[in-house]
């Protein structure tokens, strides 16, 4: 039973289930910066299922570089003192399947690279987490040169690029079917 000594096979994931709402989100979890921060952008969108219906019980996490492209190494994501940019946040979807973060636009982590947010998706009905990337629009040369985007056909590539709106960026996630988001395996 359980794990014999020396067994380093990975522990399997399981669904987040329906009852995470009182446990995982916390005050300020989706505000990487206060929405009133002068450089705050809104990163938001909807999570949709294979019928195109909203998923009202999903949980998203984002992890990103700062505007200078540096990887944040400061603690404080749960504490949220309002001044420390930790690069990580968590948001659950609402009754319309919509999620929303207040954050700063990440910069390129290497010269000429395309900035993106790393996104993790959890949901009731989703038996293991999904990883994806939300690339920011704007630097077309960097997007064209990105190795991951270049390895996808144009229709699939488009699922990984957020759209600009008046306050920030929109990134919808389709778990299944037409326009299914590209999810990633890091092997």
């Amino acid at each position: 039973m359980s794990r014999p000594a020396g067994d380093l096979q990975p522990t399997p994931g399981q669904t987040v289930g329906p009852f995470f709402g009182y446990a995982l989100p916390y005050d300020g979890s989706s505000d990487l910066v206060p929405p009133t921060h002068p450089d705050a952008v809104r990163f938001h969108g909807r999570v949709l299922d294979g019928a195109g219906d909203p998923v009202p019980d999903a949980l998203l996490e984002i992890w990103q570089a700062g505007p200078d492209g540096a990887v944040p190494r400061a603690a404080g994501s749960l504490h949220r003192d309002g001044f420390t940019f930790t690069g990580w946040g968590r948001a659950s979807t609402d009754g319309t399947g919509h999620y929303s973060f207040a954050t700063l636009a990440p910069g390129p982590t290497a010269p000429g690279s395309a900035p993106y947010l790393a996104v993790t998706v959890f949901a009731r009905g989703l038996l293991n987490r999904l990883f994806t990337r939300a690339y920011l629009p704007g630097d077309d040369a960097a997007l064209v040169a990105d190795p991951l985007l270049a390895s996808l056909d144009p229709e699939r590539r488009a699922t990984l690029v957020a759209a600009a709106d008046d306050r920030g960026f929109v990134f919808d996630i389709r778990l299944q079917g037409d326009g299914e988001t590209v999810f990633l395996a890091h092997g």
Binding site: V71, T181, F183
Partner: peptide, 23 residues
Amino acid sequence: LRHPTKDPHHADPEGIELWAPVF
């Protein structure tokens, strides 16, 4: 209705993905 139908796409982790938030 909530599982992807396509196999996950291989990506070499890079940049931010090689790190994790600090608590």
